[in-house]
C-alpha cells in the first residue's frame, strides 16, 4: 500500500486541490506533492492529525496507514507479551500469503468478529457491497474492461442508471488521476448525486499492468460510487488502503466464490482499525 497515493485519492475525494490542502496545513504544495508521490516520508503524527481533520477521517486511521507496523499491533504486543511470541513464531515459520490466509480463516471461524458498536452505518466497505457486486477471476482485461464490468453490476443495483453512462463516468475520472493505491489495489470513485454509496469489487485473475505507485501489478479493483462530498466514503477508502497493506489482494485472489470474498471483506472491514 502506498501512503502517498492513498492520501491523494482521499484529498481528491474531499474536493481539495493540492494547493488548498497545503495552504490549510501551512506546508508548501511542493512538499505535499512529494509526499503524495512517495518521494518524501509520511508526515509526522502531529501533522497527520491536521491532515485527518481536513479530510474528515479519524487520525488513528491515517497514522495506521502511514506506519509500516500498525500502532494497534504495537500496543497489543506491549499489553499482551504472549501475543508477541506468537507473532515471532509466525515469523520463524516464514508463512506465505496462502498459509497466512489459512491461519486467518481459522481465526475467523473460531473467533468471529462482530460489527463494532461504534461503527457508523456505511463506514465499512462491507456495508456498500453485496456478493452480487463481486466479480472474481477476471482475466485478459484492461482497466476499461474492469470499469465496464463494475459499471454493469452497479447499474443493476441502481435503478434508473445505465451501465454505459456509469462506465463513462468511471473512465473519465480514472483518466484524470490513477486510482491505484498500491498493494495491488485500485479504488476508482465515481460521483453520482442522489444515490446512496455503493461499491463493486472486481478481482483480477492475471495481474493487470497498470500505472501503480509502488510498481506492483493490479490485483483487485474496488469501485466506489456515491454523492460528491461524503466523509463516509473517505473512511471506506482509508480502510481499504489499510486492508491493502494487510494482504487484501492475495486474500481476494484466493477466494473461491463471491460469497467467500464477501465474507473476508466483512470480517476485515469490521476490525476496529481506528478505535484505540
Amino acid at each position: 500500500m502506498h501512503f502517498g497515493a492513498t492520501l491523494r485519492l482521499l484529498r481528491i475525494d474531499s474536493g481539495l486541490s493540492l494547493r488548498d490542502l497545503a495552504r490549510r496545513l501551512r506546508v508548501s504544495s511542493a512538499y505535499l506533492s512529494r509526499v503524495e508521490k512517495g518521494l518524501d516520508a509520511a508526515p509526522t503524527p502531529a501533522r497527520l492529525a491536521d491532515v485527518a481533520k481536513e479530510l474528515e477521517v479519524p487520525a488513528t486511521l491515517l497514522m495506521d496507514l502511514a506506519q509500516r507496523i500498525s500502532p494497534l499491533v504495537v500496543d497489543y504486543v506491549e499489553r499482551v507479551p504472549d501475543a508477541g511470541s506468537l507473532f515471532l513464531e509466525i515469523a520463524h515459520r516464514n508463512l506465505n500469503a496462502a498459509q497466512l490466509a489459512e491461519v486467518r480463516a481459522m481465526l475467523d471461524e473460531r473467533f468471529p468478529v462482530a460489527r463494532p458498536a461504534g461503527l457508523p452505518r456505511g463506514a465499512a466497505l462491507a456495508d456498500l457491497l453485496a456478493p452480487e457486486r463481486i466479480v472474481l477471476g477476471l482475466s485478459g482485461a484492461s482497466m476499461e474492461d474492469v470499469l465496464d464490468l463494475a459499471a454493469g453490476r452497479l447499474a443493476e443495483s441502481l435503478p434508473g442508471t445505465d451501465a454505459v453512462s456509469l462506465a463513462r463516468l468511471l473512465r473519465a475520472s480514472e483518466a484524470e488521476v490513477s486510482s491505484a493505491i498500491g498493494g495491488g489495489i485500485a479504488v476508482p470513485c465515481g460521483y453520482v448525486s442522489g444515490v446512496g454509496a455503493l461499491a463493486a469489487v472486481v478481482v483480477l485473475n492475471e495481474a493487470l499492468h497498470y500505472d501503480t505507485p509502488d510498481g506492483q501489478p493490479l490485483r483487485a479493483v474496488m469501485v466506489l460510487l456515491g454523492p460528491r462530498d461524503d466523509p463516509g466514503r473517505r473512511l471506506v477508502l482509508a480502510r481499504i488502503a489499510g486492508l491493502a497493506a494487510r494482504g487484501m489482494a492475495e486474500a481476494l485472489a484466493g477466494a473461491q466464490s463471491a460469497e467467500e470474498a464477501y465474507r473476508w471483506i466483512t470480517h476485515q472491514s469490521y476490525l476496529p482499525l481506528d478505535v484505540r
Binding site: 466479480v135 472474481l136 477471476g137 477476471l138 482475466s139 485478459g140 482485461a141 484492461s142 474492461d145 464490468l149 454493469g152 453490476r153 447499474a155 443493476e156 451501465a163 472486481v202 485473475n205 466464490s257 463471491a258
Partner: peptide, 16 residues
Amino acid sequence: RPLSFVSSEPAADICR
C-alpha cells in the same frame, strides 16, 4: 480482446 471471469449467472453477465 479476451475477457474472462467467474460467473454464477452467465446469461445475466453476458447481457451486462
